Amino acid sequence: MSSQLPTALVTGASTGIGAVYADRLARRGHDLVLVARDRAKLDALAARLRAETGVAVEVLPTDLTDPAQLAAVEARLRSAPSIGLLVNNAGAAGAGTFAAADPEVFDRLIRLNVTSVARLSAAALPGMLERGGGAIINIASVVGLAPEIQLGVYGATKAFVLAMSQAMTAELGERGIHVQAVLPSATRTEIWERSGRDVTALSGVMEAGALVDAALLGFDRGETVTIPPLPDAAQWDAFDAARRAMLPNFVNAQPAARYAA
């Protein structure tokens, strides 16, 4: 069926969090464009969602770390005025620390977790602004707030996703663009196996369905930052308020008195 809701493009859609987003959005009535590397899994998911929900589902098998393939998805976003919701979910984890860094692993993480998120968002925005509205959901991570968790550059990539989402909200929120950063904690997906870690050795692992359902509730509420595992929202509010309280003190022509010789 042709949905009255905007078409949603979901990256990393073949498994895990992305596949759940595809399922939930289809059941809300969104037509879908699904992006991931595994064509067989994409095709199977698309066939199921077409049969169960009646929405239109297009698949784009893509490796977002490949510049040419990423450019093709950017072009798809620019050429499709119906795409009014982008879910930047594709990402990878890295087990390497800075001291034992593999530059190739770090580079791939940055291309997937940072570059593709920024470029796809930039490609989606012109059409959304022309229509006067749209939404972008960026999957970040609680580790973007926790540099003490030693995951090398991975945490830094997720801090970028959070900061970019907040900056986009500050710039574009009043122009009808809703940007949400979702900060999961450990979630049961294939990302752990791919990064060489055993998810069964972790505590407090959330199921992907519970994570996405909570994140979509936060989206419906208009939240800019959604942290599904955080019990007390006031903790985030206090953290953000403390950050905002510093802003006026950043604009000084001279070093603070505490740095005087």
Rank of each mutant, 00 (worst) to 15 (best):
I177F: 07
L112Q: 09
R78I: 05
A140R: 07
L120D: 04
T97G: 10
A100T: 11
R37E: 09
G209S: 10
T115I: 07
T11W: 05
A253N: 11
L211Q: 07
G218Q: 04
Y154E: 07
M168L: 15
A99Q: 12
S195N: 14
L32R: 03
W192A: 14
A135R: 12
G127R: 10
A122K: 13
A92N: 08
V117N: 03
P147W: 06
L49F: 05
I136N: 08
E207H: 02
A46L: 11
D107R: 13
A156F: 03
V212G: 01
A44R: 14
A214M: 00
A80G: 01
R27Y: 09
P248M: 02
E148V: 04
S121H: 08
Y21N: 01
S79Q: 15
A163L: 03
Y21K: 01
M164L: 15
P231Q: 01
D31K: 01
A101T: 10
L151V: 13
Y154A: 06
A170D: 15
V57D: 02
V73N: 06
L230H: 01
T187A: 06
T7M: 10
N89L: 04
E207I: 00
R175I: 03
L34C: 10
D198T: 10
D107G: 10
D43R: 00
R24Q: 13
F106Y: 15
R37K: 08
A261Y: 07
A135N: 03
G144E: 05
Y154C: 08
R76T: 15
A90P: 01
S185H: 14
I136R: 07
V33W: 01
T187L: 04
